[in-house]
Every structure is written in C-alpha cells, then in structure tokens.
C-alpha cells in the first residue's frame, strides 16, 4: 500500500506561488502609468481581438497579464459587478476600491482552496478629477492588493520593464511623453525588441472626456503620438 506523502502547508503555498509566477513571466508585459490628463495603459499585444486592457465602468479600467481564459473570466465578473452595482445604486457608487476588493477575495479564495492558482496579475485603475485622486490597484495571483502611485509594470520581464519605467517616469507627463516612456520600457523586455504601433494595445482613461472616460487609441493615433514626442 502506498503512503500519501506529507507536504507542509508552507511548501504547498510556495509551490503554488512558484507555479503562478512562472506562468505570468512567460507572457509579454503590460504597463500602466499616470499622465497629466489621466491614466495610460500600454500592452505589448499584437492581437486586435483578444484584449489585455478593457473598460470596466465610467472611470474604471482593467489591465491583465497571464492566462487569457483566467483573466477574461475575472474581467467579465468585474463588468457584471460594476454594471449591477451602478444600476442598483448610482453610477458614482461603483469604485475601483470595491472592485479591487472583489478581485482580491476571488483570487485569494482560488489560491488557497484550489490546486491550481490563477496565473494572472491585474491592475484596476480609476481616474479621478485630479492626478492626486487617481487610484491604481495591483492584484497578484494570491489575492494580495497593492495601492500603486505613478506607474506599474507587470507580466513577462516585469522587473526589467519596471526598472526602465522608473528611469523614464515623471509626474505630469503629456500623453505623448508617457506613451513614449511606456513603449521604450516595454522594449526593455529584450535587448533587440522594437515595438511598432501595430504591435501595441493602447488605451486611456481621460479625465477630460465625458461619461465613459475609457478610450482605445487606434494604431494611427499611436503612431502620431510616438512621432510627436520623437520631435
């Protein structure tokens, strides 16, 4: 008769965390950063259909890295949460903090109670009336939440990208300067990586818009912005 091996809870958690980290590091990176008119999201993602960046609500957007089916599942849950809450109460009662809490609970439960943790990392961001009132929450596979300021890099070679972004990020950058900083940072994933507008998924939460502040930037606009800042 075979004896079941004893695995200590510490070891179990560590194995799960290692597994999730490995999965997340396999993909490409996403960066989120504040600029003077709002929050900018840039993903190294050539697909026009499978998004890593999405609108959740009027002032809230979502960015994710890792396994598509897993973060898509979380995104749909987030949209449902936001729309139901906004309809039940009022549109202004949907907040990034509430959503981040929901994701933290979901991810935390999945991490501890199932064998396979989600291999995802998320950012939930809400644009405020001023730069000081912007909120950026970063959620990891085990359900931990971090309240970030300025910029976030996640997925793939996240450390290298974060390092590059740290050197380039300044408060109150214009959209074109912020986009250039983001693209250059994403290029730091590999020494020979060059990102064209077509290979990028870019979106903004622009506080100067009305009602729904989320907007995707088409390739033409991305090229224009990158051209602007080069000159």
């Amino acid at each position: 008769m075979s004896m079941p091996f004893y695995v200590s809870p510490e070891q179990q958690m560590k194995d799960k965390a290692d597994y999730a980290r490995k999965g997340i590091a396999r993909g490409r990176s996403v960066v989120v950063l504040q600029y003077d008119d709002g929050i900018l999201f840039v993903a190294d993602n050539p697909s026009r259909a499978l998004h890593k960046i999405s609108e959740i609500y009027d002032r809230i957007a979502f960015a994710a890295v890792g396994k598509y089916n897993e973060f898509e599942n979380l995104r749909l849950g987030g949209v449902r949460y936001a729309d139901v809450n906004g309809y039940t109460y009022d549109r202004r009662d949907v907040t990034a903090r509430g959503l981040a809490n929901l994701y933290a609970q979901t991810l935390g439960t999945i991490f501890t109670e199932t064998n396979k943790p989600y291999e995802v990392e998320l950012v939930v961001a809400e644009v405020g009336d001023t730069e000081a009132s912007d909120q950026i929450y970063r959620l990891t596979f085990d359900g931990s939440v971090a309240d970030e300021h300025g910029y976030v890099a996640m997925g793939g070679q996240a450390d290298a990208v974060a390092e590059a972004l740290k050197a380039r990020f300044e408060e109150g950058m214009s959209l074109s300067a912020a986009l250039r900083a983001a693209v250059q940072s994403l290029e730091a994933q590999d020494s020979d990586r060059h990102l064209e507008a077509k290979a990028l998924e870019v979106a903004v939460l622009d506080r100067n818009r009305e009602h729904r502040l989320f907007r995707r930037l088409p390739a033409v606009r991305i090229e224009e912005l990158l051209g602007d800042s080069a000159g």
């Binding site: 609108e55 959740i56 949209v79 906004g86 309809y87």
Partner: peptide, 16 residues
C-alpha cells in the same frame, strides 16, 4: 430606459 441603457452598455463591454 435605465435598464435598457445598462443592458446595451453591458453587452458592449462583455462582447467588445
């Protein structure tokens, strides 16, 4: 009307 507006937006966000 309120429900209709939410449903249209909800579909748009879910389905892209």
């Amino acid at each position: 009307v309120r429900l209709f507006q939410v449903e249209l937006e909800h579909y748009e966000k879910l389905e892209g």
